[in-house]
Every structure is written in structure tokens, then in C-alpha cells.
Amino acid sequence: MSTPRTSSVVRALLEAQLRLELRTFESLPAMWLFSVTAFVLFHFGLNEDSLSGNLASGVLWVTLLLAAILVINRLYLADAEQGGFDGFLLSPADRGSLLIAKVLTLLFYLAAVELVAVPAFALLLLEPSLGQALPGLLGVLALGDLGIAVIGALVGALAIRTQSRDLLGPMLSLPLLVPVLLCVAGATAPLFDPAHAGAIPLRLLVTLALYDAVFGLIAFALFDFLLED
């Protein structure tokens, strides 16, 4: 039997993931609700009606990060509990394709969450208008999401078949995600500045892109070893 092409395997895996979510709606509504609830929590916790600059950027990104943790914890649940791993390992597909599919799945989830969370944030808490910040913000979101997706796909696989995965997942991924947070929050802060839409510090974005790339390579190199049994 010949090895199927990676792209078609990835597409099949991604389709299965998305179909699973669209049929059950297990994660997305929870993530939407979580992010809106988090904004309400920040409103009361900080006792602020509207945020701008550093504070706004931090609140938005910490919320997105924690919402991402929710789905990172569940990313491999069906594979571990309902035989997805076994089925995949029995197929002649390249193992790296599962990682790629999971990264794309996470990217889909993050984009879907942001589609609701960012407008909700602008409505509830953000002081400057979202319009002027949006073009820059989209770029930052894309790079940040990529970092979260790459690290989440690796750590999710590391934590899923352990006894305390709900605890280990966040504990492992959050320290690894701090550099991502540092870059995206720093890059978003000038966009949320009420006085003027300041320039994004490009250095931060380049650093973040490098971080994403390095962890992408690490995840790709190590993922095989997590799938061996």
C-alpha cells in the first residue's frame, strides 16, 4: 500500500475534526461564553468601565489565552478515548499530518472565538474604536494564534494520556505561552492607544514569528514520539 499524500490526509483529518465540532458544538459555545464572561469578570475585578492601551491589550489576550486552554485540553480527547489514535496509527499516513491537522483545528477554533470575543471586547470594554486598530490587530492575531496553535497541539498531545491532564495541560502550556503573550500584548497595546493608532513594534512581531517557527519545528520533530503506543 502506498503512503497517501500528506495534504489529503491533513484535509481528511481536519474535516473529521470540524464535522465533529459542528455536529456536537462541544467546545465553541463554551469558548464564546467563557470569553464574554471573562470580560465581565475583568470589568468587576478591575472596576473599570472602559480600557485602553496596555490594560486593554492585556485583558483581551489573557482572555483569549485562557479560552485557548479550554480547547487545548480537549483537542485530543476523542483520539485518546474513542480510538482515534489507534485508527490513525493503523493507517499508513505520515504521523506529522496529525500534528498539522491539529494545528489547523486549533487555528480554526481560535479564529472562531476571536470572531465573537474581539467584537464583544470592543463593545463591552474597549475605549478607542475598534476600526482604526483592526488592520494591525488582524496581523497580530494571526501570528499570536499560530504560536498558541503550535504549542497547544504539542502540549495537548503530551498531556492527554496522563492521569491529571486537566491540570497538566495548562501547567505545561502557560509557561511556554508567556513569550507569545509578551509579544502579542506588547504589539497590541499601541493599537489600543486612544490618542493615536500607534505603530506596531515590528521587532516584537518578528520575534514572535521566529518563536512560532522554532516551536513549529520542535513540535514537528518530537510529535512522532508521543504517538508510539
Binding site: 503530551l158 496522563t162 505545561l172 514520539f225 508521543l226 508510539e228 503506543d229
Partner: peptide, 20 residues
Amino acid sequence: QPLRFAIEDPERQARYASVF
């Protein structure tokens, strides 16, 4: 250490610990 402790099978524990 919590990661190691959470995996019972020694071979898998070693492998996952190395990935970490």
C-alpha cells in the same frame, strides 16, 4: 515531575519525559 508522576507505564513515562 508531575508529568512523570501522571504516567504509569514506565516506558511511556520515559518517552514523554524526554519530549518534555
